[in-house]
Write a protein that binds this DNA or RNA. Structure first.
Lengths: 298, 298
DNA sequence: ATGCTGCCATTAGTAAAACAATGCCTTGGT
DNA sequence: ACCAAGGCATTGTTTTACTAATGGCAGCAT
């Protein structure tokens, strides 16, 4: 069944011959002799069981079978040429562009990046931040997005397995003490971030604390700024475990209660499909997934 | 520049090796020896200027470059396999299905079909009639459509270059005489066909005969039936030169006036793109376009 | 008609793969 | 620890494929 595919070099000769309708010119293009082409076509016709060319006294003409066959063959070979050039073309050492939102970069990616730089010191990197929704600029080789991993036209790899986690400074402004239980949150400023489906309202709801007004507080458009404000003692932010780990370890933030609520959304590596077309992209993808799997539960 | 493409046989070995991650198994699949695969990969890596596999003590692993390269290579080769099978697979002598509307079949295609049958006595044919609009049944290999030749997903080849031409029987019912000029059409029954943009209203308008009521008369859903009724003396039908030629020659119809109005629409051969995948289809396409070019003006 | 030219097929010789056999390295089992 | 097995690289030999040269055929120009 798989045996049906003839030697691909023969198909290349066929494609060139069909284009020129002339074995001699096809041979020149492929840096071979006319005799070689002639034999290859003969072999191809023998294997396929029917003629591809009509031999005219002055040149060639495609048979019906040849005419039916050539478009698919041409497309495939053309694609091989394009792909080969994309992957191994001249600009081998171009910089890799990664679109990643600010908070993920600062609190997850940046601390690990030294490892990638060490493994691939020759790969130039460029980071551009998207706040939330991807603009349709196709300039990034890969993106890191927050969501459920379902984006048409992209293959996605999950990077984080988060719980929602309230965080605040160990020392709050106004001489307040950090809340000892969720009930006490009504006495604190809630730091909200727009753009996440699962915010304070969701978290309080999950724990049954309906008495706290989840709409009071201050709103930010990035978890980055909200966490910074929390660290400065302005209130309590609702972070994600993967993003808070760093600041919790350093003591700039504390997690006043241990009520793990899993998130339905998480961070994903999103790669445009059919565009795995540069070794640097693959290197970064591979490294990033590897890093993520170190944190994977179980 | 074109020289960038390595020998395609090497790529085939690469594809199989990447799939098995094992030269020995890849060699078995391609009916070659492990040594040959090893050498081909080595050659490929040399030409591309970088390694595709990491040689591990126990098997292989793709490098970043290999991982970036393999999807395009695999797709192309897969496509070649599919196309080869489609064109030269087992059911080599299946019947060719042509969707064509009734009037075009009877008055244009049928008279010429003997020529095709003579050239290709082995090709089985099946005709299905569409009245006007194509149903989305993809069962036809090719279609003949009336329109402007712009259908997404189809490549089209123009088959006719028509004028609108009023026709009627030389002997009308009710002892009427055929009209001598368009003015006299108001005394005759107009035979309309729905589905054509350019009907009696258009024709009379183009010639400035606004005094004739273009809405009176009898309506049909196929020019076929309208022409038959005209031949039986029931009135005057608005035909197309390419479709009336036959009956005009036989004397069953006459064209009472010589006022050529070119049509914006015409008959086209419509072939689904990327589906030129059978020699029989190509044979029919080729023959049909040849036939049409015989009638082409200039 | 005649000779010239372009183009494909064929044949014999040579260069290039594929084969067969062997070596080396690592892993996994006893 | 040691032996067996799996797997890739390497070497010399054989087969395959390419080359170079020649012949044949049909247009085209003189």
């Amino acid at each position: 069944m798989k045996k049906r595919l003839p030697p691909l070099n023969w198909l290349r000769s066929f494609e060139a011959s069909a284009r020129h309708l002339n074995f001699t010119q096809a041979a020149a293009e492929l840096h071979m002799t006319q005799a070689a082409i002639s034999q290859q076509i003969k072999g191809l016709e023998a294997q396929l069981g029917c003629a591809l060319f009509k031999r005219l006294p002055r040149g060639l003409e495609l048979t019906d079978a040849g005419r039916a066959y050539i478009p698919g063959v041409r497309e495939s070979i053309e694609k091989l040429a394009v792909v080969t050039d994309e992957v191994f073309g001249k600009e081998r050492s171009r910089t890799l562009t990664v679109r990643v939102n600010l908070v993920f970069f600062n609190h997850w990616l940046a601390p690990r990046l030294a490892s990638f730089r060490a493994q691939h010191p020759d790969i130039g990197l460029r980071f551009t931040s998207n706040i939330w929704v991807a603009e349709p600029d196709k300039e990034a080789d890969v993106e890191i997005r927050y969501g459920k991993g379902l984006w048409p036209g992209f293959t996605s790899n999950r990077l984080t397995w988060d719980d929602l986690i309230p965080v605040c400074s160990p020392i709050l402004l106004n001489e307040q003490q950090p809340p000892a239980s969720p009930d006490e949150l009504s006495d604190h400023t809630l730091l909200h971030v727009i753009g996440y489906e699962e915010g304070w309202g969701f978290w309080l709801n999950q724990l049954g604390h309906h008495e706290v007004d989840s709409s009071q507080g201050v709103h930010f458009d990035s978890l980055m700024t909200a966490m910074e404000m929390a660290a400065l003692g302005h209130g309590v932010a609702l972070s994600r475990t993967s993003l808070a780990a760093n600041m919790l370890a350093s003591g700039r933030l504390i997690a006043p209660f241990d009520k793990p609520i899993a998130t339905a959304e998480s961070f994903f590596l999103a790669t445009p499909v059919n565009q795995h077309s540069h070794p640097h992209v693959e290197a970064f993808r591979y490294w990033l997934i590897e890093q993520a799997e170190m944190d994977m539960p179980r």
